[in-house]
């Protein structure tokens, strides 16, 4: 479980201080499906970056406990991670999907998907096949990313984000670059696949329709996170 406690984050712009996250508290359990909505610039991506140990809050904690990580016996505050620990955390604990530029152009779809698994050393071919089937991309495995459509690319991105079996998948506007048809398809696949694999999903989106697909819907506004 990942427990966010009293997170505070602000930035200074032209001498003026803006508070993006104000006393955020959230608990993510294994298998949870969470969406975070908010207006543009509300801080959703910032929150996601904190969860991925890509950034550090001004104050507060993000505790990673043993329910998410079987190797750990006590809670770890990921906000205090060194760079090396953060890298390790992202390697083993987290999968990341971005709005665009999710794939490496010069390698095939299969190589893209397998990459995180190979990095962690956790290559399970059956699992990968299951992923491919679930996301309906088996026929594309030998193609290069630029040979796929936008929707197909994002599906591959989902597979890549899950190939190393992370307990937590963080998706930052995964359908932001897609048309509505593909958006529906991809978001549905994302939620269903995570559910199927019991992977916790935290998805940032500005689309209410997409947000509705998750178990928990949260709204970030004016620094405060409220459950819808």
């Amino acid at each position: 479980m990942l427990a966010l406690k009293n997170l505070q984050k602000s930035y200074t712009d032209a001498g003026e201080k803006h508070t993006i996250l104000n006393n955020i508290n959230l608990t993510i359990n294994a298998g949870d499906s969470i969406s975070i909505q908010g207006a543009s610039g509300s801080g959703k991506s910032t929150l996601l970056h904190l969860l991925a140990a890509l950034d550090k809050p001004d104050s507060g904690e993000i505790l990673l406990n043993s329910s998410l990580d079987e190797t750990q016996t006590e809670n770890q505050d990921i906000t205090q991670f060194t760079e090396r620990q953060a890298d390790q955390y992202r390697q083993f604990q987290v999968g990341l999907i971005f709005q665009k530029f999710n794939l490496i152009d010069c390698i095939t779809v299969m190589e893209n998907i397998m990459l995180p698994a190979k990095i962690t050393g956790k290559v399970e071919h059956e699992y990968i096949q299951e992923l491919l089937n679930a996301l309906g991309i088996k026929s594309h495995i030998n193609k290069l990313p630029n040979q796929l459509s936008g929707g197909e690319q994002q599906r591959v991105a989902i597979a890549r984000g899950l190939s190393h079996q992370p307990p937590l998948l963080l998706a930052d506007e995964p359908t932001g670059n897609l048309d509505s048809k593909n958006s529906d398809l991809v978001s549905q696949l994302l939620v269903d696949t995570c559910k199927q694999l019991n992977t916790a999903l935290v998805m940032v989106t500005h689309s209410r329709k997409v947000a509705m697909l998750t178990q928990q819907q949260w709204y970030l506004d004016d620094g405060s996170l409220t459950r819808i």
């Binding site: 991925a52 890509l54 760079e83 090396r84 890298d87 390790q88 955390y89 992202r90 390697q91 083993f92 987290v94 990341l96 971005f98 530029f101 999710n102 794939l103 490496i104 990459l115 995180p116 990095i119 962690t120």
Partner: peptide, 9 residues
């Protein structure tokens, strides 16, 4: 960015 996001130092 992508490779780093996968936890590569």
């Amino acid at each position: 960015m992508l490779i780093r996001s996968m936890g590569v130092s």
